[in-house]
């Protein structure tokens, strides 16, 4: 009796200490993994920040690039990037918003039509950006005769961001409380008035989020632009001119221009900071808007 109890306590003690050891090892591995990821991230950000800020001055933003970007600034590149972005948004926004309203207000999530459209959009969302580049080059540049131009680049990007834009915009329209729609019906508002005057204004923060996501995607994109909007780093004179986006500028400086690394760092820093800023500002606008909507109601 005594013996067996001793054996029992001993095995349970061994088991307990083994569990404690396993617990410690697991904790160490998991903390280690997290610290490793954080360290990689810190390395990346610190590297870009440290090397990037040196060459940045007011002149960097106002001068045109010289000697393939080794000298001068990025003014023309910022203008091209902005124009590509505008073309992209102007073409993607109406189509995307229309589709999102259609999916959210006129179809249920499980309808055949909406399932088919959504499947097609999912395929589009998964399509590699370089494939968009191929398509844009063959369709917009060659077939429609736009050549290497800001227009071709912007339209290619529009195809690319459309699925993301629609997904978020649809969600935000769907999340407008059902009671709003019932109230509108009770007041005898037509469906279109109901959507334009009531549903969309309430869904603005979500739609804004969708726009910002599209802007972020467009700013980040390189592969789809290399052979649609091209490499030319001059100040563009019209939408039919080729224009180099900031991301293509980074690529070109680091890969094709000997001694371009320093300026590539600066451009990378500008790109990262603007992406972070855009995210931050949307957060603020979204919050302010929803506060206003709450104070109205």
């Amino acid at each position: 009796m005594m013996v067996s109890r001793q054996v029992l306590t001993r095995t349970s003690r061994i088991r307990a200490s083994r569990a404690r050891l396993q617990n410690r090892i697991a904790a160490a591995v998991i903390w280690g993994g997290a610290i490793f990821v954080a360290a990689l991230f810190a390395w990346l950000m610190a590297d870009i920040l440290w090397h990037g800020w040196r060459e940045i001055s007011l002149a960097y933003f106002t001068q045109e690039p010289e000697s393939a970007g080794r000298l001068g600034g990025i003014s023309s590149i910022l203008v091209s990037t902005g124009l590509i972005l505008i073309v992209c948004l102007v073409s993607a926004l109406p189509i995307g918003l229309g589709t999102a309203i259609f999916l959210a207000e006129y179809t249920g999530p499980e309808d055949t039509v909406s399932r088919k459209i959504r499947l097609s959009l999912n395929v589009l969302a998964g399509t590699p950006s370089i494939v968009f580049g191929l398509f844009g080059n063959a369709f917009f540049c060659k077939m429609l005769g736009m050549g290497f131009s800001i227009l071709s680049g912007g339209l290619t990007l529009a195809c690319m961001v459309l699925p993301y834009f629609i997904r978020i915009a649809e969600e935000s329209i769907r999340s407008v409380p059902q009671s709003y729609r019932m109230g509108a019906v009770a007041l005898g508002l037509s469906k279109s008035t109901q959507i334009m005057r009531l549903i969309l204004p309430v869904a603005v923060p979500g739609i804004l989020g969708a726009i910002i996501l599209s802007v972020g995607r467009s700013l980040s994109e390189t592969a789809a632009l290399i052979f649609t909007s091209g490499y030319v780093d001059r100040m563009p004179e019209s939408l039919y001119d080729s224009g180099r986006s900031l991301s293509v500028h980074i690529y070109d400086l680091s890969m094709n221009v000997a001694g371009g690394d320093q300026r590539a760092y600066s451009a990378a820093l500008v790109l990262i900071v603007s992406l972070i800023l855009i995210n931050f500002i949307t957060g603020l606008i979204g919050r302010a808007w929803s506060r206003r909507m709450i104070s109205i109601s």
């Binding site: 229309g98 259609f102 097609s120 494939v131 191929l134």
Partner: peptide, 30 residues
């Protein structure tokens, strides 16, 4: 009002079908 609603829905379905065929179009184009 009824016509306005109908026109509105028409515009929306044009948008939706346009967005829906892009991936098919890209596939066939490639």
């Amino acid at each position: 009002l009824w016509q306005k609603d109908k026109a509105f829905l028409f515009v929306l379905s044009v948008c939706a079908s346009l967005a829906g065929v892009i991936s098919i179009f890209i596939f066939f184009f490639l």
